[in-house]
Amino acid sequence: MSESALDRTARALDLIPYLLEHQGISITELATVFGVTEKQINEDLILIHMCGLPGYTPLELIEMYYEDGFVTVSDPQSLKRPRKMTRSEVAAMLVSLDMMKSLQDTQLVAEIEGLQNKIRNGLQMEIPYVVISDTLTSPFVKVIEVAIMKSQALAIEYLSGSKDERSLRNIAPLELYVANSQIYLVAWCEKSGADRTFRVDRILACSVIEQGSLIPRPKRNQSMVGDNQVVLVVDHAARSFVEENQNIIQSIEQNERGYSAVLYPVDEEWLIRTIIGYGNKIRVEWPPAMAESIQVRVEAISQIYLDI
């Protein structure tokens, strides 16, 4: 085990006051909360069990019971309250609240700022992070958030960038996130029969529908990965392709010329069109049919511009 005695000590010191406020908690849950394995928690508990105050008779030891995977502390000795927060804990929390602020409208902002003052707790400290608020908004974010909370189904009109079509879809929204300067929605899409990612700025209309009218999402793991492997050689100049498409790139290697990326696209049509946009800065190494298709299309486009 590579964990240092210091890390374990820190965890043990936090574990006891936590147990005191969560009497009868399961070891499984403790492991999740503390981000370690159940085995590790068990070992911690055995260790804590032997600690206490000088004298070290049963009266002076930390008293706790663990039975059938559930833990209770009856005497924590001098460890009744949690340790004060470290500077990096305070910093991490302040910055996450800054991020939360940047995603909210004014109503919550004041409340979050009040909370930040409590956390800062008079502590003068330099925080090396700055969260830049952005103007990423969509009139539908609120509706979607509520729908996720309440497991409501939505009917959306969507302008599909990857298919170049406008479509009506019934969806069960699952997750909303900001990445690549966009807001994305992951949802079970009835029409595709699979989970899909939507750009929220391309949702043209959105309304709540009867949950029962939606074909339920199958329990099996929904993956957004296609069946066929594509290998691309990406020049440095086209690195924005790599940055914007992390989620579909399976593996990537960097070399002097750029990157070699392996992906399994769900939507090959979209990928072909995107590659053409990068000129020859992205080359298809595999499959050959995709490389040919690109050549054919490039020639067709060239026909439009014969005057130059």
Binding site: D14, P17, Y18, L20, E21, H22, V33, F34, R81, P82, R83, K84, M85, E89, M99, M100, L103, Q104, L108, V141, K142, I144, E145, V146, I148, M149, E175, L176, Y177, V178, A179, I183
Partner: peptide, 20 residues
Amino acid sequence: RKLNSLGIPTAFDFDLRIKY
């Protein structure tokens, strides 16, 4: 975790679902 050891319950009464 430390804040959760203060014995204050947690109340989710808002719909913040968007994240980074």
